[in-house]
C-alpha cells in the first residue's frame, strides 16, 4: 500500500481523490461525509425553511368522531371532500375516502375508537391516496418488494445448493 502510494505518486488532487474512492471500503465513509456536510448546511440554513400552510391532503382532527385520526367525512357511495393535487384527473375522487366496509361500520357504531385500531379494511383516505391518486407510487413500491425478494430468494437458493 505504502509502496503503491509512492509509485503512483502524489499526483494532482483529482488523481488522489480518484484513488481514494477507487477502494470500495472508502465508499461508505466518503458518502456519509457528504451527507453529514449537507445536513450541517441544512442546520445552518434552517431559518430559510418555511412550512407551507396550504398543503395537499391536509390532516384534520375531529376527536368526537369514532374514526378520529382518519375521519374525512363522506358516507359510503357518496364523495367526500378531498384536496388532491389534480382533482380533474380523478373524476371519482372522494368515493374511496367515504367508503367503509360493513364490518368497519359496525365497529364505528359500536366503539368510539375505531380509528385507533389496526383494522385496515379497504376504504378511507389512505387507500384513496395509495390506490387512486398516487397509485403509481404503490405499483412501483410493490415492484421493488418483488425485486428485493427475487434477489434474496435467488441468493438463498444458490447458498442451499
Amino acid at each position: 500500500m505504502r509502496e503503491r502510494e509512492i509509485r503512483e505518486g502524489h499526483g494532482s488532487m483529482v488523481s488522489r481523490i480518484s484513488r481514494f474512492i477507487s477502494d470500495f471500503d472508502n465508499l461508505v465513509p466518503a458518502y456519509a461525509l457528504m451527507i453529514a456536510c449537507v445536513a450541517l448546511i441544512g442546520l445552518l440554513t434552517l431559518p430559510l425553511l418555511t412550512y407551507e400552510p396550504d398543503q395537499i391532503y391536509p390532516k384534520t382532527l375531529n376527536p368526537s368522531s369514532p374514526l378520529n385520526p382518519y375521519d374525512r367525512g363522506g358516507a359510503p357511495f357518496t364523495a367526500a371532500e378531498v384536496h388532491a393535487q389534480y382533482p380533474e384527473n380523478a373524476p371519482y375522487i372522494g368515493y374511496v375516502t367515504g367508503y367503509l366496509t360493513p364490518l368497519s361500520r359496525f365497529f364505528a357504531a359500536t366503539t368510539q375508537y375505531m380509528g385507533t385500531t389496526i383494522v385496515a379494511h379497504p376504504g378511507g383516505i389512505i387507500d384513496e391516496i395509495l390506490y387512486y391518486t398516487r397509485g403509481l407510487d404503490t405499483i412501483v413500491e410493490t415492484s421493488i418488494l418483488f425485486v428485493a425478494f427475487a434477489v434474496a430468494s435467488f441468493l438463498y437458493r444458490r447458498r442451499e445448493e
Binding site: Q55, I56, Y57, P58, K59, Y70, R72, I125, I126, I129, L130, R134, D137, T138, V140, E141, T142, I144, L145, V147, A148, F149, V151, A152, L155, Y156, R158, R159
Partner: peptide, 29 residues
C-alpha cells in the same frame, strides 16, 4: 404531518424493508 405523509411513509417503509432483506442475504452469502 398530512395524510399525504402517511401515504408516503408506507412506500418508504416497504422499500427500506425490501432492501434490508436483499442486503442481509448478500451479507450471509
Amino acid at each position: 404531518a398530512t395524510d399525504l405523509a402517511e401515504a408516503l411513509i408506507l412506500p418508504g417503509l416497504v422499500v427500506s424493508l425490501a432492501e434490508l432483506v436483499a442486503l442481509s442475504e448478500i451479507y450471509i452469502n
